[in-house]
Write a protein that binds this DNA or RNA. Structure first.
Lengths: 211, 211
DNA sequence: TAGATTGTTAATCGATTAACAATC
DNA sequence: TAGATTGTTAATCGATTAACAATC
């Protein structure tokens, strides 16, 4: 008995495109655009107009209007609701090196329903605060994470420390890990790892140059 | 008359999975594993064994051996060749804030055929060097990029500076942009933008928690 | 009205899964 | 040999595209 049956009917492919629509539509809204046609969206985003209409029909509560197109603010609200950005999630950072600190200061998370609360590091030199957010010693990880019921973490330690840090995180109850370490992580069932491999992203992009 | 016709025959879906295979196989190789079966790979990576065999058959130059499986080092070499990591690409960073500096220090790029040469920033306070790599004033962007024939750039400026920085980059000849700014960028045809939206990645991951 | 733009049904395309013969 | 594991052919599944009627 699914509560959100209608949302679950949306295909994976469609769902994965929603963040791109949202980013685009917010940009247009910021420039004062009130209505937009599927053809305009398609042209700017390099996709097909029919595909856009199908995608939007699946997540939007209202229809587009012939001759007008879609109401931008309405679409934004619908996509945000679909993506679940109204449900807030707490997350922590493991590894307070350059990347970890940058993530503590990153402006974008709050817009997407994510509170990045604090960071953890094994090095005493890193303990303190960044951007008003505390950096705790790694020994306190389990205690703090369990106390707040935190399930998500961002891993930014060097590659050879990644697996042991990951193990510690899983033991403390973390079940969603966004890893910037470019190594495969062994995790037990029920724990999800997403690899944010900057090098792979850039390499894929550069591959397109020569094609 | 395509030179790499055989490689182009690989489907997009298959190609997109190659970095994950590579990450996994490197991890196994590091643990001394010499041969591995499609079933083992499938189990660890949460995919189907038949899918693994199909994917590997498309990029690997040699067959797996019944009862043995695939030779790990050979697979790694084949996937790296397929992904084109032997072709070196130069890239620069635009925006030398926390994230930009972290990318200048990031250890992973060199393994993937990417040289991150230098960074640029509009703020005089940021000029200098990070991790032995120079940070130039933005005024010199066009000159330096054109001189080295650089086509790829990583954009890490704040969201409201992103579009104008992007315009400047495109004017200087950049045609591949990896953007960390969580805003849609308008670019002319022929320029590719990939959005590395940390918040979206984490949000997608957290969405999985409640499902 | 005429034209722009929508949503939907049917057809195509591509990718995954199932079944199985081949091989060390 | 027997069994594990492979690669391939056929069947299913899902997603995209094409065609078109509906609507403001």
């Amino acid at each position: 008995m699914e509560l959100e049956n209608t949302e679950n009917a949306v295909s994976k492919a469609t769902a994965s495109r929603m963040p791109a629509y949202l980013r685009y539509l917010k940009g247009e809204a910021g420039q004062g655009v009130e209505f937009i046609s599927s053809a305009s969206i398609a042209k700017d985003m390099n996709v097909s107009a029919v595909g856009v209409r199908k995608d939007l029909a699946l997540v939007s509560s209202v229809c587009g209007k012939p001759r007008m197109g879609f109401e931008v603010t309405r679409l934004i609200a619908d996509i945000e609701r679909f993506l679940g950005y109204h449900r807030w999630t707490d997350a922590v950072v493991v590894g307070a090196g350059g990347l970890g600190k940058a993530i503590l200061s990153y402006e974008g998370f709050e817009n997407y329903g994510i509170h990045v609360l604090s960071a953890f590091d094994v090095s005493p030199a890193k303990i303190g605060a960044v951007n008003g957010k505390p950096v705790y010693p790694m020994e306190r990880f389990s205690e703090i994470v369990k106390r707040h019921g935190i399930k998500a973490a961002i891993l930014t330690v060097p590659r050879n420390a990644a697996q042991s840090a990951c193990d510690e995180m899983v033991k403390a109850g973390i079940c969603a890990i966004l890893s910037f370490a470019p190594v495969y992580l062994h995790v037990p069932e029920g724990v999800t790892v997403k690899y944010e491999d900057l090098a792979v992203s850039l390499a894929a992009l550069c591959g397109g140059i020569t094609e």
